[in-house]
């Protein structure tokens, strides 16, 4: 394999948490997400049905961890991360896993921090690639860890 794309700066950044991001779980956000997926369970749409089933409010559908707060001139979807400087031109989302510890409901405000857990270099069918493994923790305003997201990005 050619020279490593993993720089000393990247090595030093492994395990270091990025800036805190704030997301809001709103009833409208839950409904729009559920509608986009095609959910039919009314707990994702109707507050009364959700409460009858023991939830505090409209439930956030699987994979919905709230909407990041947008401000003009910012790119909240970057999660406070600056794009990696790599010799590769293209980037692919390799995959995502969600782990839940508590249900998220409308009204929750979630504070998240993301960190790189590992860099890997591989020779794949599409050529040499750099895989960045990232873990993001989601903590509700009352301090409860509600979810974790594990993802990987492929630069190639």
């Amino acid at each position: 394999m050619a020279e490593s794309a993993i720089t000393d700066d990247m090595r030093a950044s492994v395990g270091v948490e990025g800036p805190e991001m704030i997301s809001e779980v709103t009833s409208t956000g839950c409904r729009l997400f559920a509608r986009a997926v095609g959910h039919t369970d009314l707990i994702f749409y109707d507050r009364e049905v959700a409460r009858q089933r023991g939830y505090r409010d409209v439930v956030a559908p699987p994979g919905f961890l709230g909407s990041l707060i947008f401000r003009p001139g910012e790119r909240p979807e970057m999660g406070g991360q600056t794009p990696l400087k790599t010799p590769y031109r293209r980037v692919l989302n390799g995959g995502t896993t969600f782990e839940y510890f508590e249900p998220l409901c409308a009204g929750d405000v979630v504070h998240s921090r993301s960190k790189v857990t590992e860099y890997q270099e591989r020779q794949g069918s599409i050529g040499p690639m750099l895989i960045t493994f990232r873990e993001t923790s989601y903590v509700r305003s009352d301090g409860t860890l509600v979810a974790k997201m594990y993802g990987n990005l492929i630069n190639y």
Partner: peptide, 24 residues
């Protein structure tokens, strides 16, 4: 998210989705 629905619809109403994910 479709896979999340697949699991949710199977375990509802009394069960719950703890963890799910996939590679693309």
């Amino acid at each position: 998210a479709f896979l999340g629905q697949l699991l949710h619809d199977w375990v509802a109403p009394a069960g719950g989705v703890r963890k799910f994910g996939c590679t693309y």
